[in-house]
Design a protein around this nucleic acid. Structure first.
Length: 353
DNA sequence: AAGGCGGGGAA
DNA sequence: TTCCCAGCCTT
């Protein structure tokens, strides 16, 4: 069937070739200059590419830049990372979130230090913390393997090119595989992601600056921002908790958190207020466990973590327990907020309202 | 297939 | 506020 209008058909082979050429040409002149992109195309340093990809999972590039520099200064090679204690690795990651990334990266570095770097998608995929996206990124960028990445940028760009409101993971991967430029897989993957991050942005895409708007169905429809449809997200859960500060904001009693939430980090002794419980009861339980006495309320802090909003009552207490250096420990933002109350409390003693 | 996992930027 | 960010792992 012949189409007489000038509506683009990005699923046609000739159009795909033109689209590849246009996007790669744009990338060669307008791609981002990022520190982990040093080295020859398709032959980058696997360690640096790997670290950057883990850091950038669910983390914007602007933020990743700071941590990349900090992390590589602390652990310049995979051997240095493998030999470091986990606490040091988490300290370098402190504030970046999703701390399982750091712990998995550390575990994987110990495997790589012993066995060498994998040299294929499948080999990378077997390392902890390396999923389909990261394996494809490292394989294409450091080894020149023809693997298409599928991340949030790729999903959005492809959803718009094909006007697909609800693109499934399988659909995105299939389109990305078909569109991949097998001659320059690394550059192609970066080009698609750069386009998504700088031009084909979520809220207000800059279609006037887009090198492939002529191939885009969403643009032809005049409503690029309608694709993809927003994802349904779980409601934020309210959580009440109680913590005690034994010591001060420099040295305090800290416990290692276990489980999936903030697991591996250190923090103030803390307990959640369960249903049907009062904060007073939880404080009492906490003090019994620590053999602590003489509590005084320091204040309250709140902290939102995507899926839950934590309201924390913080009490100063005294107990015969060893304190640790706050500066040398990896703490969550929530614990730093709680520790900040100590400084405010001291100040207010001298400058009452 | 769905939910959990941090913290912050942009609109 | 809302939505999203170079995703991965567990259930």
């Amino acid at each position: 069937m012949t189409v007489f209008s000038d509506v683009p058909d990005p699923e046609e082979a000739g159009d795909r070739a033109a689209l590849r050429a246009a996007l790669l040409s744009w990338f060669d002149t307008s791609g981002r200059d990022l520190p982990w992109r040093a080295g020859m195309e398709g032959k980058r340093d696997p360690y640096r590419v790997w670290v950057s990809e883990i850091l950038l999972q669910q983390t914007q590039v602007a933020r990743g830049l700071t941590y990349y520099d900090r992390f590589l200064k602390a652990f310049p090679t995979v051997q240095a990372l493998a030999q470091a204690p986990e606490g040091d690795v988490l300290k370098a990651w402190e504030g970046c979130g999703y701390y399982a990334r750091a712990r998995n990266l550390h575990r994987a570095a110990r495997q790589v230090a012993a066995q060498g770097f994998p040299d294929s998608y499948e080999g990378w995929r077997a390392l902890p913390g390396v999923g389909p996206y990261t394996a494809a990124a490292v394989a294409s960028l450091a080894y020149g393997e023809a693997r298409a990445v599928n991340d949030g940028n790729v999903r959005r760009v492809l959803a718009r090119l094909y006007a697909q409101a609800v693109p499934s993971e399988a659909w995105v991967q299939a389109q990305a595989d078909t569109l991949l430029d097998s001659q320059r897989p690394g550059a192609w993957n970066e080009a698609l992601m750069d386009l998504g991050a700088t031009v084909c942005t979520p809220r207000s895409p800059r279609c006037g600056a887009c090198p492939v708007s002529g191939h885009c169905r969403a643009f032809a429809q005049g409503r690029p921002a309608a694709y993809p449809a927003p994802k349904v997200r779980a409601a934020v859960q309210e959580v009440q908790a109680v913590a005690v500060l034994i010591g001060d904001h420099i040295r305090a009693v800290l416990e290692r958190r276990t489980g999936s939430l903030l697991g591996g980090l250190m923090g103030l002794p803390m307990e959640v207020v369960g249903p049907g419980e009062t904060a007073e009861q939880v404080l009492h339980r906490l003090c019994e466990r620590l053999h602590a006495g003489r509590t005084v309320l320091l204040g309250q802090v709140s902290h939102t973590m995507t899926h839950r909003r934590i309201t924390l009552q913080v009490y100063a207490a005294q107990a015969a327990l060893p304190v640790q250096s706050v500066e040398d420990s990896a703490l969550s933002r929530l614990d730093h907020k709680a520790l900040d109350l100590y400084t405010r409390q001291q100040t207010s003693l001298f400058t009452p309202d």
